[in-house]
């Protein structure tokens, strides 16, 4: 069976201007209880790879440069 790519708007948004993942920071990736954030090979910045968010906010609270914002997933809004 073919696997489709269904588009999804994700709740966690990273301000790439502020994100310092390219300098080696992995705080948001480390603290996420669901392990849904990754560092992009393309941009060197953090992004939400898996739409499996509890909107609990450690990623935002612990980010040293205030680059992360957690929105409420669209289905709940």
């Amino acid at each position: 069976m073919p696997i489709a790519n269904t588009p999804t708007t994700v709740p966690v948004v990273v301000d790439e201007g502020k994100c310092i993942a390219d300098k080696g920071c992995t705080v948001c990736v480390d603290v996420c209880p669901l392990d849904v954030l990754r560092i992009s090979d393309l941009t060197g910045k953090a992004y939400m790879k898996y739409d499996e968010c509890w909107y609990c906010m450690p990623c935002e609270a612990d980010c040293p440069t205030d680059a992360v914002t957690v929105n409420i997933p669209y289905l709940l809004r």
Partner: peptide, 13 residues
């Protein structure tokens, strides 16, 4: 009821 698999009361982990 939202249908979002991770929109649970408990931490979904």
């Amino acid at each position: 009821t939202s249908g979002y698999l991770y929109g649970t009361y408990e931490n979904p982990t």
